[in-house]
């Protein structure tokens, strides 16, 4: 076959490992802005409406979200352990820890769906209900996206595609999961804990 020879330097930008991690970082920035938009909406209502949350709404029980916060902590620890393990080429820890993080992500989403059905108000009740459900819904959508991301990384890990030299996808996945966890704690605090005493 006819071929063209292209020179490849050690500094060839095509092989720059920074780009995967940088891409994840930049993408997370835009995701942050999406949630900032939703939190702006929440706070806008709080400012213009006086009584926020509306007096007609009873404070939902935070039991399931508290359990979920625990699930999220363990999941974040698992993916952090996993990501450190592959940095040291420790495959025996890397794959199981990643699998644990992934399963806990699924558990989180399942508990969240139970929580949806348990609430006394719905997205159509009033603008509080809409705002409440939107924040939970778009967060759990990210959780599911993160779980899919982890599944892909898990499959690639089982095939043996990662090493300490080649693990940008693992790092990116872990970064995204930290972001989702961070958003969860803010959502949890805003929706369940930050209620005025009446």
């Amino acid at each position: 076959m006819n071929t063209t020879k292209l020179s490849v330097q050690s500094t060839d930008p095509r092989f720059n490992p920074r780009k995967g991690v940088a891409g994840a970082f930049v993408f997370i920035l835009s995701e942050t802005m999406f949630f900032l938009g939703l939190f702006f909406m929440w706070n806008f209502y709080a400012v213009v409406q006086g009584a926020w949350p509306p007096l007609s709404i009873a404070r939902p029980s935070p039991i399931l979200p508290i359990i979920n916060s625990g699930v999220m902590v363990v999941s974040v620890i698992a993916i952090a352990v996993s990501s450190r393990a592959i940095a040291h080429d420790n495959r025996r820890v890397f794959v199981p820890a990643l699998a644990v993080a992934c399963m806990l992500g699924l558990l989180f989403a399942a508990i969240q769906i139970v929580e949806f059905s348990r609430l006394s108000f719905g997205p159509g009740s009033n603008n509080f209900g809409s705002a409440f459900f939107f924040l939970l819904f778009f967060h759990v959508a990210r959780v599911l996206a993160g779980v899919i991301f982890m599944m892909i990384v898990l499959v690639r890990a089982l095939i043996g595609q990662f090493s300490s030299q080649h693990r940008a996808a693992v790092t990116a996945c872990a970064m995204y999961w930290y972001f989702i966890a961070g958003v969860w704690y803010i959502v949890f605090y805003t929706l369940y804990l930050a209620w005025p005493t009446r």
Partner: peptide, 15 residues
Amino acid sequence: TQFFKSSDPRLWQNM
């Protein structure tokens, strides 16, 4: 949902 139904139109304008 009821984001804009009864609330202030400035929410949309801001966003």
